[in-house]
Amino acid sequence: MTTLRSSSPWRLTASGLAKLGLNGRALVIAVPMIWLLVFFLIPFLVVLKISVAEPMIARPPYSPLFIEGQDGWSIKATLGNYAYLFEDSLYINAYLSSIKIAFFSTVFSLLIGYPMAYYIARSPEPKRSLLLILIVLPFWTSFLLRVYAWIGILKGKGVLNAFLLKLGVINEPLIIMQTDIAVYIGIVYTYLPFMILPLYANLVKLDDALLEASADLGAGPISTFFRITIPLSLPGIVAGSMLVFIPAIGEFVIPALLGGPDTLMIGKVLWTEFFSNRDWPVASAVAIAMLVLLVIPIMLLRLAQSKQGDSA
């Protein structure tokens, strides 16, 4: 039996509980909130702060933002580091080259990824799951080691050249390692699954009846593909493309391992600036500039993902 408690003591416990519950709630919200504020948001403010400081030979190697002078505190900030990014053509070239490499890698990934995603989405069930697992499987093995594997394949005396020489397709070994081509291969290889998964999630929902209706109304397969399938899978295309483009822009490991000394990418420049030149303010300015570059792609990704509902 549910006994109804007499109202006055009951009210007391209720308010007590409400108070406790409310505090518990606030506590639960506070835990992830504080963690992310301290270890995600504040670090950006620190980067922003250091990007307007001057490099100094000190520990840490930059000038303080707030300076205690005779008449209290004053702020010392400079845009010199940003100006420097424009003065030295190295940075501009690195930016343009990053955009170029990321863009073409995205296009190649789309050209390979779209047919694969389409093929998987149209496969009958047991096969479809198996193929999907095959796409995801490389994720779980070391990214670094998979990129490393390409060195063995692409280098002068590598597997690819040995194979092609044996077939007689070429007479001289191809020079691929330490060129931009190797970087393209590495990026497409690494991020192809990121392209395929959102495309698959979109294409698998495509209703067969739509394609049949289009055919029924007199459109050929090619016309149907360009007029029905492509427009409907646009959110998947955008999401997949951004998931390749965004990490490709900031990529460090692939150009460092597969690219040559001429391969310019901002991720690599930032790394060098920080570890080799120990110029923290310039490295910070490079980071901020990279973020600015990524704002539009990130917004596109958000838009595509909200249109697609879930996935990715």
Binding site: I246, G250, L270, A287
Partner: peptide, 20 residues
């Protein structure tokens, strides 16, 4: 803050945390 780290280039995350 929950979704941003997913699209943040690693070099930026690494640099910002170190500076912090």
């Amino acid at each position: 803050m929950v979704t941003a780290p997913l699209v943040m280039p690693e070099v930026i995350t690494g640099l910002s945390l170190l500076l912090l």
